[in-house]
Design a protein around this nucleic acid. Structure first.
Lengths: 344, 344
DNA sequence: TTGTATGCGTTATCAA
DNA sequence: TTGATAACGCATACAA
């Protein structure tokens, strides 16, 4: 039988280390604070004692003293969308590189948001970063009330303390329309995301304006409503089939819906991409590059967006009053793949 | 111009609320602690004062007093794999339902792990949950040293304080072999994940044993090495092609590789699934259900795994000494789809 | 460079 | 039910 070590009653504190090392408690603190004035000899004594006791500095008291937790609340929904998952990965990495921890809050719907925010705030997070695309005034007010910096991605939220970093949704929609017109297509479909999603709205408006600007009068735009899921993209094409509409081009508000739509066109309507229908999506998720889809898509350049978010955070942390609001637009990059490449 | 409110110098504390409400600071604490003895009248006074000042309780001091932060460190890698993304979503939801916060730590490789762990521990997290599949002794020792409960998914880590919850990788591999044999296939391929991935190893062993037990002597097993990515699955099939091998069945250690392999078979080798090659994957990621793949897969039942993890955590929190180690196996559920459905 | 003393914002204990 | 007080573990100002 393995001898079980003594159960830990109390965590090892700096006082324990100080006692063992024969120094004061402040010396221990100094030994673990880079740049503080301490002799090498004392430092080594302390570190040795700490090592032997298994001491690990406790950041909690420092939070009380400094008023800064170095934790950022990340509020996210829809991790089943690979776009959000990879964006979270980038964000988490960037935050950590800047010495910030991620207190993650996954919310299914906006209803639970208030409660979630209260929980986050009780941990004295320094800021909130969120990708929730809910464009409601209630949410904006709830966020503003917290009086901590908030950085939103692809939202239309406005208010004190709230900054926004958006992909150039409108411009990308416009570009999609131009690309479709260039290829001579005349029966385009716009497959929208959730109704209250600000990004989807902007993409749709840009697309419409692009068609109007370029298109002759013979353009027949069909608008369909999805909810950003694969299934909704598939279902949208089925509704086209029922209506007897045969599209020749499609722009979807995100890649998941585009993949669903492409599969439905193949399986249910015997239409091929790009021969019969050219297609564009948004987000450039990994699956867009998979050979079965080979989908042209707009890349949001999450790397840039995340970098910008960190600049905003740093600025907010330095300012006394960071209630000032900013909005930034990041260009989306068109990634052309086979779904818009016409055969010679 | 909008009048800017006064910059917040100091957060509102319970003392501020107490002063405004004309009560003691303990009364404020009690007003926000459900179940404590306080008159309705006092409580209302306090809540009103708190509301008007925008006071929000601060959990940080409570962490110092109780020694429990109610934060769980979640260490994860590979969010670009939809399986991990959706698993994280489930885990985060379950933790929150149990009053636990998620302190997220994304690690790219095991090298940065030590550093990452130190950071987590300095926030006095109550436990660690990780899906890292690195089976190294060094990692296990680093985790054990922390002296806090650790719950691993699909790992082979052992040691004090470490509990493990594994999918029945071996059993599933065995079942995959039986399914392939039943369909009369004789040239199976095993497409492994990263070499040091414990789950992949177990799946491969189970598969091999299944083949040996069932198969006649005419079975020719081909083993290929991947790294759990789509591209590695694609590349693996190209290597088969170069060797002039035409498989009739394939079991991949995860769905991403299976998707890559299926695309390569179609695009590069003119082999169709399931007609020429029947295929099975693992994880049952959403994409496995997409029509282009329609991939038979083993579902890890992450819901059950997460529920089990929370049981372990609760148990650990109640026990004085939770250094005892457990291992749990959760059955994987075979989800049969078109990739193993032979035409009549 | 080192040690002493104070304070951070709560909760728990105790007395009233 | 209420209020005063101690305690949590560390960082910092100050004194030595």
């Amino acid at each position: 039988m393995v001898t079980q070590e003594q159960a830990v009653i109390r965590a090892v504190t700096s006082i324990d280390v100080a006692r063992l090392a024969g120094v004061s408690q402040s010396a221990v603190s100094r030994a673990f604070s880079p740049g503080s004035s301490i002799s090498d000899q004392t430092k080594q004594k302390v570190l040795a004692a700490a090592e032997s006791l298994g001491y690990r500095p406790n950041r909690i008291p420092a939070i009380m003293l400094s008023g800064r937790s170095c934790m950022v609340g990340v509020v996210i929904g829809g991790l089943e969308n690979p776009f959000y998952a990879t964006a979270l990965e980038r964000l988490a990495t960037a935050l950590r590189e800047n010495g910030l921890q991620v207190l993650l809050m996954h919310v299914d719907d906006a209803l639970t948001l208030d409660n979630a925010l209260d929980q986050l705030v009780s941990y004295r997070i320094d800021a909130i970063v969120t990708s929730l695309a809910i464009g409601s005034k209630t949410v904006a007010q709830a966020l503003s009330r917290l009086r901590i910096p908030v950085v939103c991605f692809n939202s239309s939220l406005v208010g004190p303390w709230i900054s926004t970093i958006n992909s150039d949704n409108h411009g990308a929609g416009f570009a999609a329309a131009h690309l479709i017109m260039e290829k001579g297509r005349v029966r385009p479909v716009w497959l929208a995301g959730p109704e209250r999603n600000a990004a989807s709205l902007a993409r749709g408006e840009g697309f419409l304006q692009g068609l109007q600007q370029t298109g002759a009068s013979h353009i027949e735009l069909t608008r369909l409503q999805g909810d950003d899921t694969y299934d909704s993209g598939y279902e949208a094409m089925l509704s086209l089939k029922r209506q007897g509409i045969r599209p020749d081009s499609l722009f979807a508000s995100n890649d998941m819906m585009a993949c669903g739509a492409m599969d439905a066109l193949r399986e249910e309507m015997d239409l091929r991409c790009p021969d019969d229908v050219i297609m564009l999506g948004y987000d450039n998720i990994p699956q867009a590059a998979w050979r079965s889809y080979d989908l042209t898509s707009f890349d949001q350049c999450t790397g840039k967006m995340v970098a910008r978010a960190l600049e905003l955070l740093e600025k907010a942390f330095q300012a006394k009053d960071s209630s000032h609001s900013h909005t930034h637009i990041i260009d989306a990059k068109l990634i052309e793949r086979g779904s818009t490449r016409l055969p010679l």
